[in-house]
Design a protein around this nucleic acid. Structure first.
Length: 482
RNA sequence: GGUCAAUUGGAGAAGCGGCUUAACUCAGUGCCCUCUCAAGGCACCAUUCACGGGUUCGAAUCCCGUAUUGAUCACCA
């Protein structure tokens, strides 16, 4: 038999923006597809019309592309053979298949209301039933009853008629063999809601089959959905795709990352705004729950495509560690060439200084001083601000340093030396300090620290000679003269 | 509570029956460098793999039980 072309999908619901978990899911699917020369499609599961948010879909798509994950097919680049890619545009398709199931007796209309269901669930639980299941009331309803419901104006949903005592087994790409019983699926679940919109489990099966998806890599939260979906595949006599369930990402408390958790930055847009590089995010996420067959830590997308293997996906939950992500980002910032670095860092420098006052060459010179120090673009703002608009000296130690007996002498000598200076560059400035040291016999901390404090107000930062170079001779003299 | 999974240092984790005195990385600690912070360099950081049994000449690795953690049990996805 000819091997089917690998087709995978990333299928978010547009109920929010792209977050860490979604990005990981998309990334692993993308890598898997590319490793096997396959395709990845971007499909929108927008059947929860209540929770869809405006802009959710487009921003997810844009963020994905920003990360370097380009879908082969999507609502914006459809393949006519499989389009449309939004589930709400495929309603007719689902209805058709659902009705086919009803005709065959594999599904049935259900007129029970939520309230009725709730009451009967209560009853079951009170009678010592441990796991509630739909009681199939409507499966066994008489024609008269159904007519009565219709007269009342009740709109039915469609429930699948599960086979009893059926073993459902699948070979998970990550976990190996997983077994369920059809008895443990929670009863005949709804496949079409009474508003004519399919439920997730039904729409997914229809779409994955019609779009010829061969592999489904998704979060562990879907593990218990898989037997339900397989039950549907069986009803249609379709071959299910291969499933792989990756672990969830948890926060510091060991809880699943929730979109509402504000303690943790989890949206791609937040990281972009803070000055994280897409390549770094991809690299970090790649290593969250997956390890290569080597000690390699830094991966380009191409290397990742080459080495990715779902078998090496972890089976236990991964904690999201922002510190390591920042470390990864720092590694990537350092690898940037000058042009890309400047382009990347400029907007952040703009928050500390007036960009129009500097040419690109100068900006780059300044930015380069921080290249090895920052974890993200945002990190350049505070130290730059300290230099451009210094704060008052605070702290006892700092004040004492500035009040040293030798300080006035140091400043005076330094100003004199600087006045002599023709070209302000680090080499010359170093020489200036040497001259001052020789002239008045002050060295080390007592020499440098008061100058640093007078210039920036704080006791830490980049090399003093570089600070002087950034400020320029006149500004330095002005600040020392105060 | 039912079902399905997971459990190796603070974190990501490798190891999957003898090569392990448990790799590598982040974080942490100490030292060096240094006017300072950061970066960088060097070193330290699990006698032990949730616990209890078993199998074996030999177990972190296989089996069984217990505990804990997670996911899920909707006309949400």
């Amino acid at each position: 038999m000819e091997e089917k072309k690998v087709r995978v999908r990333y299928a978010p619901s547009p109920t929010g923006f792209l977050h860490i978990g979604g990005a990981r899911s998309a990334l692993f699917n993308y890598l898997f597809a590319k490793k096997y020369n396959g395709q990845i499609i971007f499909r929108i599961e927008d059947t929860d019309i209540e929770r869809n948010v405006p802009g959710g879909e487009k921003s997810q798509y844009d963020d994905l592309r920003w990360l370097g994950i380009d879908p082969d097919e999507s609502p914006y680049e459809p393949n006519e053979k499989y389009a449309p890619y939004r589930q709400m545009e495929r309603l007719d398709i689902y209805r058709q298949y659902a009705e086919e199931l009803v005709r065959r007796g594999d599904a049935y209309y259900c007129y029970c209301t939520n309230e009725e269901l709730e009451i009967r669930k209560e009853e079951q639980l009170n009678n010592g039933v441990k796991a509630y299941k739909y009681d199939r009331k409507c499966l066994n309803a008489t024609k008269e009853q159904i007519e009565a419901y219709k007269k009342e104006g009740r709109k039915p949903c469609i429930r699948i008629k599960l086979h009893d005592h059926e073993k459902i087994e699948f070979d998970d790409l990550v976990r190996g063999k997983v077994t369920f019983s059809s008895d443990d699926l929670g009863g005949d679940f709804v496949i079409m809601k009474s508003n004519g919109i399919p439920t997730y489990n039904f729409a997914v099966v229809i779409d994955d089959h019609l779009m010829e998806i061969t592999h489904v890599l998704r979060g562990e939260e879907h593990l218990s959905n898989t037997p339900k979906q397989i039950a549907i595949y069986r009803m249609f006599n379709w071959e299910p795709p291969k499933f792989g369930h990756m672990t969830i990402i948890v926060n510091q408390n060991g809880k699943k990352l929730s979109k509402r958790d504000n303690n943790i930055l989890q949206f791609m847009s937040q990281y972009r705004d803070l000055g994280y590089l897409p390549e770094a995010i991809v690299n970090f996420i790649l290593l969250l729950g997956w390890t290569p067959d080597s000690n390699k830590e830094i991966f380009s997308m191409d290397e990742a495509k080459e080495e990715f293997d779902p078998k090496r996906l972890s089976t236990s939950p991964s904690m999201f560690d922002q510190q390591k992500m920042t470390w990864t980002n720092a590694q990537y910032i350092r690898r940037l060439d000058d042009a890309r670095y400047l382009e990347f860092i400029k907007p952040f420098m703009g928050k500390a200084l007036d960009l129009s006052k500097y040419d690109d060459k100068t900006l780059l010179d300044i930015a380069l001083l921080y290249k090895d120090e920052i974890g993200c673009g945002n990190d350049i703002i505070a130290p730059l601000t300290n230099i451009i608009s210094p704060s008052e000296v605070e702290g006892e130690e700092e004040k004492a340093m500035l009040a040293l007996d030798t300080t006035p002498k140091v400043f005076k000598a330094l100003i004199e030396e600087l006045n002599e200076l023709k070209e302000v560059n680090p080499e010359n400035i170093k020489q200036v300090f040497k001259n001052v040291q020789n002239a008045i016999g002050v060295k080390g901390k007592a020499l440098y620290m008061p100058v640093r404090l007078a210039l920036t107000g704080v006791s830490h930062g980049i090399e003093l000679v570089n600070i002087i170079k950034i400020l320029g001779k006149e500004e330095v003299i002005a600040r020392l003269s105060k």
